[in-house]
Amino acid sequence: MQYFLRRVLVNIPVLLLVTIVIYLLINLAPGDPVDFFVNEEIGITKEDLDFVRERYGLDDPIPVRYVKWLGQVMQGDLGFRFKNGDDVAEVLAVRLRRTFLLMGTALAIGIAVGVTLGIFIGLRQYSLWDFTFTGLSFVGISMPAFIAGIFGLYIFSVKLGWFPSGGMRTIGKPESVFDLMYHLVLPAGTLAIFNLATFMRYTRFSMLEVRGEDYVRTAKAKGLKPPAVTWRHVFRNALLPIVTVVGLSLPTLVAGALFTETIYSWPGMGALLVDAVAARDYPMVMGIMLVTALVVLTANLITDLAYAVADPRIRYE
């Protein structure tokens, strides 16, 4: 408990530092939010832009604006989007829910199938199964998300017509979990390919490493049955690297996947961040970054705690 509290306290200044750095970077980038109000093909006067800048408080120095933003955040107010006046917290709540569903499903499939296959081929080194799945995993890891997304959409939606071309629901039909799942299959499947391949590779490697340890040989020598050796001695000890990789993947649950969300018109956090940065929508960018930083820090903490669960020898004193 003491360890947990200490880690939480250490994370507070880290979080503060992260917000300062991000606020500086986004404000030092060329351009400012009023550019959203300019349609280059139509034009606008400088006076109009100056007026908008004043209206949004953008004529204050950066440190003043940061302190104002931080003061708002401390009171639980993330502010409003410059672009359209939306409440940043509300936008985040909606988008996080969608992204968590997409990324969570992809991650769950990746862990379940990837780890299972990793164990399977880890126990069959240099077999046909091993070569086949290892080869496929290289394809999965190497294929860029936008290529996999476009292929998936073209084959399964345009050509075969099995799945919708994007979005989160069938327009005009009642909202239902089944319809949502139907729309989730292609984007989550696309993302799961990478996750699956990654977890399979790590699990295979970890299993092979542990299988060569002395204590595994001892376990076999003392007459334990193969399943007991595999699950109690090999897999249990192979878990630590897998826990690390899963922990590192947790932030993607909120960060989203830009290309997949774009290709499948899945309005999640990835597309939101790009939209916010392109519009220099500082409150939205800061809101996203704050949530992402929080999740990264929390994920790191959970990962560390999970080590102790996976390996009883680890103690946090």
């Binding site: 017509g161 919708p164 290709i263 018109s265």
Partner: peptide, 23 residues
């Protein structure tokens, strides 16, 4: 009876939706 404007982030996604018959 209804006219519906579906939002797309990307032109490619809209074109694929057109080709798949969704729009």
């Amino acid at each position: 009876d209804q006219l519906i404007n579906r939002y797309f982030v990307d032109e490619t996604a809209a074109v694929l939706a057109l080709e798949s018959g969704d729009i």
